[in-house]
């Protein structure tokens, strides 16, 4: 195989951005939708793990990875419904419920997933976009999963729905002022239920990508906090779907930096490179924060901004 040297690092970061970003993307888009309706669902980490486990289990039992993706989405939606129903009760804090559901989701997934750590389930196919290249590295980098493409299309679609459709307007109204929405005759709880359930559905699909495509197996350390990171990405992206896409790609690429540098022989300081995504977040947060204005784009009903 040809040695690409430093081009190899650039390629690896690009490939990493494509491979690793999908769960971030789905979870952050799901969370964005939920937060636009005025609630924070911190439980998406649990939903992600639950999605990963159920997708793998269903794929193993039925032999169809796509059925696994669907079931992962439904399991995620179920968790979303649970979150919305509990938060619909008076004087319930959505963040506390989210943390409880995060623990429930991971615990339940570990418990039910015991039997599926060992077996190998069929995983999702990839589309070869690198057929034009002779370099195996390029071909491997451009093996792209359909879920990634769907995620990339989903971001502008979500933006369009939120800004240009009646449904989007309702969600945003509920998220910015529950009183105004009530005055207009919309059921705040029902809208939030739909938004949280859809958000959970997306997060569950994000989980299925982890177990059914990359890294493509189920084990208990699979998520390692990606769900929580994705929730933070939404704030980082200032509640804009397109920026969510950018942030997810950035995180995926930054995560690939550590291994890529070591593979070309930059062996010093790998702990620092492995921390790259978090350093990057800090730097961008500091660079973009301002003492004179509050977070722009934050839905008015969010408990963290209210």
């Amino acid at each position: 195989m040809e040695d690409l040297g430093w081009w190899g690092v650039a390629l690896a970061v690009l490939a990493g951005a494509i491979r690793v970003s999908t769960p971030f993307l789905f979870v952050s888009l799901g969370e964005l939708l939920t937060e636009k309706s005025g609630r924070i669902n911190l439980g998406l980490e649990g939903t992600l793990v639950m999605g990963a486990m159920s997708a793998y289990a269903i794929s193993y039992m039925t032999g169809s990875p796509w059925l696994g993706v669907l079931v992962a989405g439904l399991a995620g939606a179920l968790f979303g419904v649970l979150h919305a129903l509990i938060c619909g009760l008076p004087r319930v804090n959505d963040i506390a419920v989210g943390i409880a559901l995060m623990l429930l989701g991971t615990g339940l997934a570990f418990f039910l997933g015991k039997a599926f750590i060992q077996p190998q389930a069929p995983i999702l196919p990839a589309i070869e976009f690198g057929w034009w290249s002779d370099l195996p590295q390029v071909r491997s980098a451009l093996q792209i999963n359909v879920l990634f493409i769907l995620g990339v299309l989903l971001a502008p679609f979500l933006l369009w729905v939120l800004t240009n459709t009646k449904w989007g307007l309702i969600v945003r109204t509920v998220g910015d002022s529950a009183d105004a929405a009530r005055a207009m005759g919309y059921s705040v709880n029902l809208v939030r239920l739909a938004a949280t359930a859809s958000g959970g559905f997306l997060a569950g699909i994000g989980g299925s990508f982890l177990s059914l495509y990359y890294p493509g197996s189920w084990n208990e350390g699979l998520s390692s906090g990606q769900g929580l990171m994705a929730v933070a990405l939404v704030i980082f992206a200032r509640w804009q779907p397109i920026r969510c896409l950018g942030a997810a790609l950035l995180f995926g690429g930054a995560g690939a930096l550590g291994p890529a540098l070591q593979s070309v022989g930059v062996t010093q300081g790998y702990y620092l490179f492995n921390a790259a995504p978090y350093l990057l977040t800090l730097v961008i947060m500091i660079a973009t924060c301002s003492p004179t204005r509050t977070l722009t784009g934050a839905p008015g009903e969010l408990s963290i901004t209210k």
Partner: peptide, 12 residues
């Protein structure tokens, strides 16, 4: 136990 890093490392 870092499944994604391990996959990235192997690919790298």
């Amino acid at each position: 136990s870092m499944p994604i890093k391990e996959a990235e490392a192997t690919n790298g």
